[in-house]
Amino acid sequence: MKKTSKKVIGLTASALIAVSLLAACGNSSSASKSDSKTISNLKISFIPSKNPDDITTATKPIANILKSELKKQGYTVKNIDTSVGTNYQAVGEGLDAGSVDVGYGMSATTYAMYQDGSTPLLMATRKGLSNDGSDSAKYWNEHKPTTKTDKEVTSYSSLIIAGNSPMGKKLAKEANDGTLTWKDLNDAKWGLESTSSAAGYMYPSQWLTENFKHSIRDLKNTVTMDSYDSAMAQLASGQIDVMPEYADARMDDAAKWTTTFGAKESIWDDTNVIGVTPAIANDGIMVSEKSKIMTADFKKALSAAIKDMAKTDEGKKVIAIYSHDGYVDSTKADYKTAIKVANSMSKAN
């Protein structure tokens, strides 16, 4: 009996050691990520491509909506902390550092600049535009106003827009005549977005390089804006002559043009296109590679929750601030052109 007891005790001890070793191995492989179905805090930072106060107001309901949708996916999220980045880079840096879990509304080139610290989760879909497919400024000017179509698209162009100032009018005439020159572009005052903005900086720079052999950094009269609304307001008042913007920005600000921005004529009468960039991948929702809660399972649940949110009436109101209609799954391959543009800009430094 004693021998049997020792044998049983020995086997039990061995089993316990084996279990302990397996547990240790399991802990070492998942130390940086939590597999818990309860999330204490999910941090979402929104890109400030519109007026930050408007984004804050529009996205306020997202916390409760996502909590509900994530619950359906089996996750309990106790708190969702939302904020609007001070600029595009701040969101990218937050993802890179792990201080932000989700970057919402990230431009293609912002992702390209911070691709090592973040992963694409979803890409926005938007309604297409009536002038999509044409890279002719004259065509866009002859077919005003731009209208939306029923076609869902995952890319858009940036338009180089001239205002109603004397220089703006001169540039518009030259664009329509095919006589636009670098000298006149360089003499104009430009309102630019953050250096990591796809539509407001990087793709327009690529357009200048391809058409005039100059970078956006070569322009002598530029001012950096904190949002497209700020740039649009200055374009309306004549403080700037030119601004690059996403193609449906004039549609978004048509009402503000004669109210908030104080212009006398309509935005379609006062502005013209002088350049059209190649297609840009739509805004994305990116997740941090450094985040301790972003397991493969939670990414899947978050993706499903956001897509389902976008189908609800309340969710549609939230994402309308970015002109998003819905979301599709996304990977790094969707941003290969943006990565190429970002690399080109980096080499030009």
Rank of each mutant, 00 (worst) to 15 (best):
K316L: 09
F261A: 09
K71V: 04
S40H: 07
K170F: 06
E69F: 00
L16G: 15
L70W: 04
L302N: 02
G284T: 10
S291L: 09
K170M: 07
T222P: 06
D297V: 07
K127E: 11
S157H: 01
I47V: 11
S157F: 00
L302R: 06
Y322S: 05
L121Q: 04
L70Q: 02
Y156I: 04
Y203H: 04
N343I: 10
A124G: 09
K183S: 13
A247W: 00
T154Q: 15
D325C: 04
S40M: 07
G284R: 01
S237P: 08
A342W: 09
G315T: 10
L121K: 02
A233S: 14
V341T: 02
G85Y: 07
I285E: 00
S155C: 02
E152H: 14
D135C: 05
I44A: 03
L129H: 01
M167H: 04
D132P: 00
W140G: 00
T181H: 08
H324A: 06
L185P: 00
K316Y: 09
M106E: 15
T224F: 05
A236I: 01
S136W: 02
L95A: 10
M123N: 10
H214F: 08
D248A: 03
A304H: 05
N131K: 05
K347G: 03
E174Q: 15
I293Q: 01
S45E: 02
K78C: 07
V77K: 03
K67I: 10
